[in-house]
Design a protein around this nucleic acid. Structure first.
Length: 883
RNA sequence: AGGCGCGUGGCUCAGUGGUAGAGCGCUUCCUUGACACGGAAGAGGUCGGUGGUUCAAUUCCACCCGCGCCUACCA
């Protein structure tokens, strides 16, 4: 059916901002993006990454979320019932930190709740005063209030950008449903014997005062120094160790050297005597000691590093924890059983210089003491520090969000068993299709090299609490050995306010009573359940079964070791499943200097002005021209390219839909040949999309649209499309032009949803019965019922394009424009090509602005090649004034 | 130190066992009836280096160099 639009449209321009507003509105009214809960057809389920709402919005968000949206839109057009939720990650440290700064408050776990507390945003004057102390419940209220604001900003951007999220599926990681899911998960893992708690040395951030997991640890190069310190040997003699952490000298519990190191062999089995503190400690042999490093003999402390922890465990060494939870050295008593000393008076005097100091301060202090010969362990009157410290740079473990090095601190923490499932988890990861494929190695690499179980308890406030209480004995001591677990039906619970079964609130923290677990879960403990939260695991097992495993998890590569790993671990531990069939790894947006954009680097570009300037479609184009897994440098020129595509679509559509002709079939050989090539483009794009390669699909489509459709095909058939003499040819041309437009619009709809929808509404919405292009069927064989297949069928179109190109080149060389009339044109080509183009001669002649037969066969020419033999420009018509 | 990725015209990036591609930028030209938020033509590359396999290598293999990321490395 030929569509003819109102001629006033011909003079209109595309206003992207208006289109974004009005189409966004209409899509909501129409429910265009809605997931059909009762739908029976195939589903496509997306595990959308919940953005951290307290972070700053920047173009990186636009980039990766658009890459997910294009997949959703494609699948929806394929007829899938698309499940595309949006979650907000609002719990956790980033929110706490933002709330602390924004309101200038601190959480005081045991402060009483103040109902109706109102705290305004802090001003500069307010920030100079000490922060206000608020209860945990009040603090959480502030977190919720602020994240609600942040979520609004994200939602506004997402809608403007045209993310086809079903907002009925919105969730947040602190919501009741998420808390229930996380606690449910904990109870299930507890039942399965996959969680345990233990009092043990744990990676500890002294500023946040919480335990952290291996996955949240990163190495940073730090300046330090080797300190060469003389130790004594019981019964006489001495040796020199090298250490970067002399402040841990009071925590020394042993000395180790390599078993085959001749220098120290004689010492094994003897006891060393530490300088200053005069503590006798065992000297033992260990293969883990590097003979080349330092002096080849080292002190073992509780705890300087992970190897210390290992030796402490394996050798049953003493525990002498001197670094406290706040990063200051705690007060200890030398001379007793915990901190033995051969000279308690001296030891106490030395430690008095260190107690209460930060690790840094203590290091300075201890070095000063070591310079003093009176600290000499051998009594020879030599300074224990045998040389000036040698500056080095070495990697030090930090919490990824922290500012000071991590310490190992002995605390009671909950863990999920992952080490014993390494192999199974590696295999689970291998059953997932990674895009790009090599990203699976990151997962495997991380999983195979794990060396700590997953620490899931955090000593923080804004998060999901453990559904756990402990009995308090008659002596007032808490019994951690047999926790009281919440009942599944009672979830979510907060053990700080809720009471365990069989107890009364009055018994809280009293002898013979109970106490609630004060810790909250690692945020990843909740985030690793996004598939379960979205599918409704805890409230509708049937719906969960229908949607799980999901189809795709989009995410970025730096959180493979956290989000991807934990999600796979949870799915495996709970259900023995993989959580999704595909992982789509997006790249990073780099600034023009090739650095990753991040708030801390101060190089972020915010997206709103880009949307205002170029329009959402153009911004989306930039995001979608980048392939999965590939980092992209931020380059505003690409937005301009997207903008150009949008305008070209608009203008080509104006032309295609303003043609008038009688209804008729596509019958002309050139038109059929054009459709054949278009069909191949559809096949290519579809194959690429099936492999999640939206960028490859865009490349094919865009190429064909520009050079096949607008530059060539439209030019070739322009004359025939308004011919009075050839009604059948005219119908064929207009029908093919419009059919081509319909197909191309649908191919581009996932990328540039606004302009394609606008154009679709001019006529196709009515003729196809699909009010929205985004619910129209993805182009397929059905669109090409009349067009022949096979490589040969498209060759007439190829040859016609090549012919036009040759003529344009010749015209340009003669100093003429494309539109210039020709008095004479003779072009040679091979006989087969000539034969192929004979039925299209009229189109070629008019496109070339020539007259009569212009193409002649010549033996020996390559098929598809053209040679312009003669070209004579017509006289320029006299210029007419005005228009 | 190991693993992975990348190295293609000035820039950003596709691609392929058989004459090297796009966009931007640049040069020249054009307000032609969908489009100046346009259009046409053109210049510009020994596809990081060295070997090997092959009739043929930018493409496959090995080694090397440079860049990036991930992992490891606190004595």
């Amino acid at each position: 059916m030929i569509i003819t639009i109102d001629p006033t449209t011909l003079s209109s321009h595309f206003e992207s901002k208006d289109a974004e507003e009005s189409w966004g509105q209409r899509w909501r009214e129409w429910g265009t993006h809605r997931f059909d809960e009762g739908g029976r057809g195939p589903t496509y389920v997306i595990d959308t990454p919940p953005p951290t709402v307290s972070g700053s919005l920047h173009v990186g968000h636009v980039f990766s979320y658009t890459q997910t949206d294009v997949l959703a839109r494609y699948q929806r057009m394929r007829g899938k019932n698309v499940f595309y939720p949006m979650g907000w990650d609002d719990n956790g440290l980033p929110t706490e930190r933002r709330v602390q700064n924004y309101y200038h408050v601190r959480c005081e776990a045991h402060a009483p709740y103040e109902p109706g507390l109102e705290v305004a945003m802090a001003d500069d004057a307010g920030r100079k005063r000490p922060p206000r102390r608020v209860s945990r419940a009040n603090f959480i209220e502030l977190c919720l209030a602020l994240t609600a604001e942040d979520e609004k900003a994200f939602k506004t951007l997402w809608q403007r950008l045209g993310l086809s999220v079903d907002w009925a599926l919105e969730y947040s990681t602190i919501s009741e449903a998420s808390r229930r899911a996380a606690q449910w998960s904990f109870l299930d893992l507890h039942r399965k014997g996959q969680v345990y708690q233990v009092e043990a040395p744990t990676l500890w951030d002294v500023d946040f005062r919480t335990a952290v997991a291996q996955a949240e640890v990163e190495d940073r190069p730090q300046k330090g120094a080797f300190h060469h310190v003389r130790f004594g040997v019981e019964g006489g003699g001495s040796f020199v160790i090298a250490t970067t952490r002399p402040e841990l000298l009071p925590a020394c519990v042993g000395v180790a050297a390599h078993p085959e190191d001749e220098r120290y062999r004689a010492l094994f089995g003897k006891r060393a005597v530490t300088p200053l503190f005069r503590a006798p400690v065992p000297i033992f042999a260990s293969e883990l000691v590097d003979r080349e490093k330092g002096t080849g003999i080292l002190m073992v402390c509780t705890f300087g590093d992970a190897t210390d922890v290992q030796w402490w465990r394996e050798r049953g060494l003493a525990l002498r924890q001197v670094v406290g939870r706040d990063g200051h050295l705690v007060h200890v008593e030398f001379g007793g059983t915990s901190f033995p000393s051969l000279d308690p008076t001296r030891a106490k005097a030395a430690y008095a210089h260190l107690a209460g100091k930060t690790v840094r301060e203590a290091q300075k202090a201890v070095v000063d003491l070591l310079r003093d010969p009176s600290g000499c362990p051998t009594g020879e009157g030599l300074a224990p520090l045998v040389a000036e410290p040698q500056p080095i740079e070495h990697p030090v473990k930090f919490f990824e969000k922290g500012d000071r090095p991590l310490e190992f601190v002995t605390t009671r923490q909950w863990f999920v068993k992952v080490l014993e499932h390494k192999q199974a988890l590696v295999e689970a990861g291998d059953r997932v299709a990674w895009h790009p494929d090599f990203m699976r190695l990151r997962f495997r690499n991380w999983t195979e090299n794990l060396n700590l179980d997953w620490c899931i308890s955090r000593q923080r406030y804004f998060g999901v609490p453990f559904p756990v209480w402990y009995r308090v004995g008659a002596d007032g001591a808490t019994d951690f050995s047999s926790p009281i677990l919440a009942d599944e039906a009672s979830l979510p619970v907060d053990p700080m306010t809720a009471v365990p079964p069989g107890y009364a609130e009055a018994q809280r923290a009293h002898p013979g009573g109970f106490t609630g677990e004060a810790d909250i879960f690692d945020t990843w403990f909740t985030s690793s359940l996004t598939p379960q939260i979205a599918t409704g695991w805890t409230r509708s097992p049937e719906r969960h079964r229908r949607l799980f495993p999901m189809d795709v998890r989009p995410q970025s590569h730096e959180i493979i070791r956290t989000w991807a790993f934990y999600t796979i671990a949870k799915a495996w531990l709970h259900e023995g499943q993989i959580p999704w069939r595909n992982v789509a790894i997006s790249g990073w947006v780099l600034d023009p200097d090739r650095k990753k954009m991040s708030k801390s680097k101060g190089n972020v570009v915010t997206p709103m002005h880009l949307l205002d300037q170029y329009g959402a479609d153009a911004v989306r184009y930039w995001s979608l021209a980048a392939r999965l897994g590939t980092d992209t440098a931020f380059d505003e020129k690409v937005f301009a390219v997207g903008r150009r595509l949008v305008m070209k679509v608009w203008n080509a559509a104006k032309y295609a839909l303003s043609q008038e002709a009688a209804d008729g079939p596509v019958s002309h050989p050139l038109d059929l040949s054009f459709l054949t090539r278009l069909r191949e483009t559809v096949e290519k794009a579809t194959a690429a999309f099936e492999d999640l390669d939206y960028a490859g699909a865009l490349d094919s489509v865009e190429r064909f649209f520009w050079s096949g459709y607008t530059d060539n095909y439209l030019e070739m058939v322009k004359a025939r499309a308004r011919s009075e003499e050839d009604p059948a040819g005219r119908s064929s041309a207009v029908a093919a032009v419009q059919q081509g437009l319909s197909v191309i619009l649908r191919l581009l709809a996932p990328y540039i949803p606004y302009v394609t929808e606008e154009v679709w509404s001019w006529g196709f919405a009515r003729t196809t019965g699909a009010p929205s292009i985004h619910r129209a069927p993805w182009p397929s064989a059905a669109d090409f019922a009349g067009a022949p297949g096979g490589a040969e069928a498209g060759s007439a179109f190829d040859a016609a394009c090549a012919f036009l190109e040759a003529v344009r080149k010749a015209k340009s060389a003669s100093g003429a424009t494309v539109g210039r009339q020709l008095a004479k044109l003779r072009v040679a080509t091979s006989p087969p090509t000539h034969a192929r183009l004979t039925p299209c001669m009229a189109d070629l002649v008019s496109a070339a602005r020539a007259d009569g037969e212009v193409l002649e066969p010549r033996e020996g020419m390559e098929d598809g090649a053209f040679e312009v033999m003669e070209i004579v420009l017509a006289e320029k018509p006299p210029r007419t004034a005005g228009a």
